[in-house]
Design a binder for these strands. Structure first.
Lengths: 235, 235
DNA sequence: ATATGACCAGAATTGCATATCCGGTCAAAT
DNA sequence: ATTTGACCGGATATGCAATTCTGGTCATAT
């Protein structure tokens, strides 16, 4: 539970590989059965290692899960950035928002994190209420204000309300998945262009928003985040 | 369970009044404790009548609850219509949408119905899955198409996607209430004008949409609905 | 003609003893 | 130097009888 990694032999390649394999196994099982009902033995078996081996990497099940969530967030950041960089309009508000949705909706654990899904997060949520699980809103009001200064979002908007709107929309898109049958929900491929149009019309400045400026801010933001992560900071 | 009201003496004023009092009591208790944990005796006591009296109005607890939900929906329709009529822009898409949200967000039972809240709907949901609880989306794709023909919604939009967007936003606004602390959520008074602007810019035609035409459609729709209700049809 | 609440039977809950499970450890095996 | 899995104790699940609760009824009171 003390932030410092206590894994003595994490240097060799085989161990890094094994660590990832264990996290993969844990993610798969926890998404399916939930944290409480997934046992450390289950995870070890799924990863093809012994239970003891798991405890060579993390001092407790909770620490394993924390690491798993952190990795999930880091992977999100990487994939998000990649999509943004590859898309000329990736730095516009509609671009960055929809790319983040695309990445998130494909990752069940991120969805669970976003909705604070008790089925999946289980008792971990009650215990670690503050910590990894604290409200994470990548597109906060603060973020919107930065984007306004950079000419990515209309300057006359109330940043709090724009952030609120985007947060509601994102949350609704997750919840509607489990409320309606699949055939009643438009595919992401179909929905994304329409949503982009909606967001652009309502939140972007005349002319569509400065994509390059947007990319620059996100690059800086993620670099700073990765810095913090490299220093072992979990926040 | 057969749609016909079996309440033999529902004609006299005192009984109509008592019926409403019982429904009020039931709504209050069920919103607070959930359907399963609210007993018929509780409801009777809260309404100041005997248990037997409750069964003079409805043949079973489930029927009482069905009546309660139907009344909730009818009240929604009335209040929604009133707000629309009083607002010159009430017939625009942003007007009708936000008025519906305003009415809904103030009524806990409607929110529960909208989110299929198991805490409140309890076992009734599993038993009556089809029935009153079937997906009700007042602003369906069908509805949006009508509004397009009437010049309330931009004609070049994909109606399915516009309806999807509005449904997600509405759902997100309900869920975000229980996810964030109250002080992090903008008040409706503050949010409504901004949301109206968002919706107008993205979904309304140039010039803001034909409010009168919109009102006419909703009037017709609700009149037809009330007709059906008067005939005892629950759908 | 209405309204009541004691009453009924089945369902749900409680209490509790027993059995199982699971996070975490560490002596032994590799 | 690594890795394993048998083992430990507290937590959780299970089985089951006794008890309480609750939806629904109806003889009686008003």
């Amino acid at each position: 539970m003390d932030g410092s990694g206590r894994n003595v032999e994490a240097s060799s390649t085989v161990n890094v590989e094994r660590e990832q394999r264990i996290l993969d196994a844990a993610t798969k099982l926890i998404v399916h059965y939930g944290y409480d009902k997934t046992t450390v033995s289950d995870i070890a078996r799924e990863a093809g290692v012994s239970k003891g081996a798991v405890y060579l990497h993390w001092p407790s099940k909770d620490d394993l899960f924390t690491a798993l969530l952190l990795r999930e967030i880091q992977l999100f950041a990487v994939e998000w950035m990649e999509m943004i960089e590859q898309d000329p309009d990736g730095g516009t508000l509609q671009g960055m928002y929809l790319h983040s949705l695309t990445v998130m909706l494909k990752r069940p654990m991120l969805k669970a994190l976003m909705t604070q899904d008790r089925r999946i997060l289980g008792d971990f949520m009650r215990r670690q209420g503050r910590g990894v699980l604290q409200r994470r809103n990548i597109m906060s009001a603060e973020f919107i204000r930065l984007m306004q200064e950079a000419g990515v979002v209309r300057a006359d908007l109330d940043a709090d309300l724009a952030a609120y709107l985007l947060a509601c929309l994102r949350l609704g898109m997750i919840y509607i998945e489990e409320m309606l049958d699949d055939d009643q929900i438009p595919s992401l491929e179909r929905a994304v262009p329409a949503l982009a149009d909606f967001i652009e019309r309502s939140l972007a400045p005349e002319g569509g928003g400065n994509s390059e400026a947007g990319k620059r801010i996100i690059r800086a933001m993620l670099t700073a985040l990765q810095e913090r992560w490299a220093q072992g900071q979990i926040v």
